[in-house]
């Protein structure tokens, strides 16, 4: 996956502010830079909510476009959530999620969308990325995304890694889990 370096991320995080100023100075097309700004904000927010240091900007832009296309009010909500994140210092995704849901219960759905986007690769019930979804990145030492198994025949007989019982707490209140009908 094409990843930003930590430095790129900081740059993008500081934001977008820097980027848009530069963009405006260089070329007078503010419409373009506003999309860029939003996508950069989305990426910065996503980095905090995934507790990650790098994420693919290309995937971020694609997810953002799908999410706001499906639910137009997400545009403002993501911007507000970004502002909320900027107003305090959050050490973790969990801290931010707790604060966000407390500030406005609607942020829960926004965060679900962002998690579903990055981890499942899905937005607006459409696949935005399949094999590049983070759920496969964090399980790649054990399983392959279906149709992309490259362990060779019978790799499956070997012992996969042990996984300790997690102890961390959720950041959001639970929701009803619905299995899609087949």
């Amino acid at each position: 996956m094409l990843r930003m370096s930590r430095r790129d991320v900081l740059l993008a995080g500081m934001g977008a502010a820097v980027a848009s100023v530069t963009a405006q100075a260089a070329e007078p097309q503010p419409a373009v830079s506003s999309d860029v700004t939003e996508a950069a904000q989305f990426l910065t927010l996503s980095l905090r909510l995934t507790d990650r240091e790098t994420l693919s900007p290309a995937i971020g832009s694609a997810l953002y476009a799908r999410i706001v296309q499906a639910v137009p009010e997400r545009k403002a909500q993501i911007s507000q959530l970004y502002t909320l994140m900027r107003q305090s210092h959050f050490e973790s995704a969990q801290e931010l999620a707790i604060a966000a849901e407390k500030a406005d219960p609607a942020f829960k759905d926004v965060i679900h969308d962002i998690m579903t986007g990055w981890y499942r690769g899905v937005a607006d019930q459409k696949v935005v990325v399949y094999r590049s979804a983070l759920m496969f990145d964090i399980t790649k030492d054990a399983v392959y995304p279906k149709t992309y198994a490259t362990g060779g025949p019978f790799y499956w007989t070997s012992k996969p890694p042990e996984v300790p019982l997690p102890t961390g707490a959720p950041g959001l209140s639970p929701s009803k889990f619905v299995v899609e009908p087949t």
Binding site: T50, D51, Q94, H112, P166, P170, L172, P174, V178
Partner: peptide, 11 residues
């Protein structure tokens, strides 16, 4: 996700 996990704890 439906249980409310985010970030490191989600992973």
């Amino acid at each position: 996700i439906s249980k409310g996990y985010v970030g490191k704890e989600l992973e």
